[in-house]
Simulated scan of single mutants.
Amino acid sequence: MRKKIKDFIIIIFISFLLLVILEVILGFFFENRKFQHQSNKIDRVLASNSYSEKDIPFIKQFYNDYHKLTYEWDPFTEYKLKSYKGSAININPQGNRKTINEDTIITDSRYTIYCFGGSTMFGEGARDIMTIPSLLSKKLKEKEPTKKFHITNYGVPAYSRSQETALLIEALKKGKKPDIVVFYDGFNEVLLKHPNYLKNVREPIKQSYDAIKKSNKQFILALKSSNINTGIKKLQNKLKHVEKEKYDVIINDSILDEIIKGYRNNIKITDAISNQYRFNIFNYLQPSVYTKKLRTEYENLQYNKHEGLDKVFHKLYQQLTTDSILQNSNNFIDISNCFDTSKENIFIDNCHISEYGNSIISEIIANDIIESIIGN
């Protein structure tokens, strides 16, 4: 009997030791894969020629920071960014990326501006000082030096318009009061309907908060966060049948109608809220590589990268820009063609834009805000 117990203990010990070794090996493997993915992303961004040679260290640092970002569960928006301090990216405890505000003194007479969007508004590929919100602050001060502005960047990677609406409502419930609210959307609304996007973009975000959401027990949390568990999930995904990226087949007319209805209803909701809380609102339909007419060779590569996605965006944007309800809204602004005359590389992939692109977008928004302020 004692021998059996001893043998059992030895088996348990060896099994545990093997699991530890496997956990360590998988840890090295996943870190190497993560590093390789990061290196490929950096190479792709540099290939766009949107940055000079002196910016190469920044790009490397940006994506080093970007891949270290973590998320936490949020009951209203599903997830939000956790605080982070890096060389290229800084996130405050509220989950907002740092905005370089020209006016640092807080006064009652300042204009409070909230900027909502996905990773483009967040500022993928841009340093803190060159995001759309930071550049907007600079341009507003240049145009109206006697007025004071304070801007908050509420952009979060992979956010949709519905999440942004929920985030605005939560801010208002906490007693925050903006004077101007900016929404910058159109791209994620489409991609969130495709399984490959959910697997490659949303799933990694979900994994970073899922264990915490489901359990506060440290042992369960450790198991769910382990490399072995990650490896099992990846193997399961490999064994599953994965649809080819034929966007125009998967995202059919019925799904497009659903996207348009959801986008339109979100605008209706936030319009009603803005009337109640008395702030101005701007809903920008964002540009993408699929809406740019004069594309560079690099941008054409991005244009043709995902089969059928160009057809989806052409059809969606054509319907959105001719929608009678949206056309009658003073708050819906189509800027999808704002890069049409540019012969330079604007896009670093099919939706994210360079710092130069951010400058163009912030100029458009600044002009609209100034016009609304003068009009009032």
Score class of each variant (00 low, 15 high):
Pro75Asp: 12
Pro75Tyr: 01
Thr77Gly: 05
Thr77Ala: 11
Thr77Leu: 13
Thr77Asn: 01
Glu78Gly: 02
Glu78Ala: 12
Tyr79Ala: 02
Lys80Gln: 10
Lys80Tyr: 01
Lys80Pro: 11
Leu81Pro: 00
Lys82Ser: 06
Lys82Cys: 07
Lys82Phe: 14
Ser83Asn: 15
Ser83Ala: 14
Ser83Lys: 12
Ser83Leu: 07
Tyr84Pro: 00
Tyr84Ile: 07
Lys85Ser: 09
Lys85Val: 10
Gly86Phe: 06
Gly86Ala: 03
Gly86Thr: 02
Ser87Lys: 08
Ser87Phe: 05
Ser87Leu: 15
Ile89Ser: 04
Ile89Lys: 05
Ile89Gln: 04
Asn90Glu: 13
Asn90Lys: 14
Asn90Arg: 14
Asn90Pro: 08
Ile91Phe: 14
Ile91Lys: 03
Asn92His: 11
Gln94Pro: 08
Gln94Val: 04
Gln94Trp: 06
Gln94Ala: 15
Gly95Ile: 13
Arg97Cys: 10
Arg97Phe: 10
Lys98Thr: 15
Thr99Pro: 03
Thr99Lys: 08
Thr99Val: 14
Ile100Cys: 13
Asn101Tyr: 05
Asn101Trp: 04
Asn101Thr: 10
Asp103Ile: 02
Asp103Pro: 01
Thr104Val: 14
Thr104Pro: 06
Thr104Ala: 01
Ile105Pro: 11
Ile106Pro: 00
Thr107Asn: 12
Thr107Glu: 08
Thr107Lys: 13
Thr107Gln: 05
Ser109Gly: 15
Ser109Met: 06
Arg110His: 11
Arg110Thr: 01
Arg110Gln: 07
Arg110Trp: 09
Tyr111Gln: 01
Tyr111Val: 12
Tyr111Thr: 15
Tyr111His: 07
Thr112Lys: 15
Ile113Lys: 06
Ile113Pro: 06
Ile113His: 05
Ile113Ser: 15
Tyr114Val: 04
Cys115Lys: 03
Cys115Arg: 00
Phe116Ala: 06
Phe116Gly: 01
Gly117Gln: 05
Gly118Cys: 10
Gly118Tyr: 11
Gly118Met: 10
Ser119Phe: 01
Thr120Trp: 09
Thr120Ala: 07
Thr120Ile: 11
Thr120Tyr: 10
Met121Tyr: 11
Phe122Pro: 10
Phe122Ile: 05
Gly123Val: 03
Gly123Met: 05
Gly123Thr: 00
Gly123Arg: 07
Glu124Lys: 10
Gly125Met: 00
Gly125Lys: 03
Gly125Tyr: 00
Gly125Gln: 03
Gly125Glu: 09
Ala126Cys: 09
Arg127Trp: 01
Arg127Glu: 09
Asp128Lys: 09
Ile129Glu: 09
Ile129Asn: 08
Ile132Tyr: 04
Ile132Asn: 03
Ile132Arg: 11
Pro133His: 13
Pro133Gly: 03
Ser134Cys: 07
Ser134Asn: 00
Ser134Asp: 00
Leu135Val: 14
Leu135Gly: 06
Leu135Pro: 05
Leu136Met: 06
Leu136Pro: 12
Leu136Gly: 08
Ser137Ile: 00
Ser137Tyr: 02
Ser137Trp: 00
Lys138Ala: 13
Lys138Cys: 09
Lys138Ser: 04
Lys138Leu: 13
Lys139Glu: 04
Lys139Arg: 04
Lys139Gln: 07
Lys141Cys: 04
Glu142His: 09
Glu142Phe: 02
Lys143Arg: 08
Glu144Arg: 15
Glu144Gln: 14
Glu144Met: 15
Glu144His: 13
Pro145Ala: 11
Thr146Val: 14
